[in-house]
């Protein structure tokens, strides 16, 4: 049995199943992070005092550029597939994976710094919000890395057996990755700068 439109586009909707699926998934993710950002606003406006400048802006900024860079390499990984350049695709995908890894290492340094200073999530609502938001975002990074590792490793076989679907899957991975990047673009000013 074949499920129609897994690879090819349905003419009247102009979509393949996976693309609609990933966009719907991202819509629900917007609601998830939207709820957390709203909670942040409500808790902050309701507080008597809100700490500022507690976080390492430099590390945060470096991480912002790392993620933006990884979004670029992600696009390149997909574009090189479209140009039938398998070698470049491998390079860019591995590069994206590595950048995501560096992001998490930086995050670890930040977390460790807070912990050594005794700033556990229970320290204050600001720190609690910081750990919850960045922690959940970090899990999304980790999830993206698992998917990329799959396409770097065992999933790469599909390029030989079903090239079109493989290209689509890299595209969907990219859409997710841009979303994770976008969340950080909001997180950085909200937590580090404002």
């Amino acid at each position: 049995m074949n499920i129609p439109y897994t690879v090819e586009v349905r003419p009247d909707t102009g979509l393949a199943n996976g693309k609609l699926g990933i966009w719907l998934f991202l819509a629900s993710e917007v609601m998830l992070f939207g709820a957390l950002f709203s909670s942040y606003i409500i808790l902050r406006t309701g507080s008597i005092h809100w700490p500022q400048g507690e976080l390492n802006v430099w590390l945060g900024m470096v991480n912002t550029f790392i993620l933006i860079g990884s979004s670029v390499t992600m696009v390149m990984a997909w574009a090189s597939l479209k140009l039938n350049d398998w070698g470049k695709h491998r390079l860019y995908l591995i590069l994206t994976f590595a950048l995501a890894g560096i992001f998490l290492v930086n995050k670890y340094i930040e977390y460790a710094d807070h912990i050594t200073r005794g700033e556990y999530p229970s320290h204050s609502t600001f720190v609690a919000m910081y750990f919850t938001l960045t922690g959940l975002h970090g899990l999304h990074i980790l999830g993206g890395m698992v998917v990329m590792a799959y396409f770097i490793g065992p999933g790469k076989k599909m390029y030989q057996t079903n090239r079109e679907q493989f290209v689509n899957r890299i595209e969907y991975t990219g859409l997710y990755w841009h979303f994770v990047d976008l969340v950080w673009i909001f997180l950085f000013p909200v937590l580090y700068l404002l």
């Binding site: 609601m31 992070f33 939207g34 957390l36 909670s39 999530p121 229970s122 609690a128």
Partner: peptide
């Protein structure tokens, strides 16, 4: 669209219970 906010709230309540936050 409606369930994710409860997931967010659930995570925050879990933090309140497990990590001692006070959301």
């Amino acid at each position: 669209l409606a369930f994710p906010p409860l997931e967010a709230a659930g995570v925050m309540q879990l933090m309140d219970r497990v990590a001692g936050t006070s959301f």
